[in-house]
């Protein structure tokens, strides 16, 4: 049974573009991060607090704060202080923006989305 599980995992991983696979494994490894990237990609000039962004994506502020900080650490979001308020924006780094574009472009394919979901759930175990 274990062998079958590993085979399935390997198959799913082999099917994915290596760069995107790394991106999913290392950077978009939670559903909230995925939501945040999708939101910022669709609304690229958003500049707001974690609390307000949480309202925009329909998640809890505490969860968004932690996950947004990890996206900042990974260079996908940026943070700046406006009158002591931490404000999150999409990264201005061209390379990372291209990677986000590629990832969300690939997500338009249902099979790819299923694989991403699988990887995220697997990472949660």
């Amino acid at each position: 049974m274990t062998v079958q599980y590993e085979d399935f995992t390997t198959k799913l991983m082999n099917d994915m573009d290596p760069a995107l696979l790394d991106f999913v494994k290392e950077k978009v490894n939670t559903f909230i991060k995925w939501d945040l990237l999708r939101f910022f990609h669709g609304n690229p000039n958003t500049a707001d607090t974690a609390e307000n962004i949480a309202r925009y994506v329909g998640r809890s502020a505490a969860a968004v704060k932690a996950e947004a900080q990890e996206l900042v650490d990974d260079g996908l979001l940026q943070i700046r202080l406006v009158a002591d308020l931490p404000i999150y924006t999409l990264t201005q780094d061209r390379e990372n923006r291209t990677l986000i574009d590629q990832f969300l472009g690939a997500c338009e394919d249902r099979d790819f989305r299923v694989k991403v979901v699988y990887h995220i759930i697997r990472g949660m175990r």
Partner: peptide, 13 residues
Amino acid sequence: RVIMSSPEVTHHD
């Protein structure tokens, strides 16, 4: 540029 923000952030900004 279409900027989404909140009034408090925009005012401080």
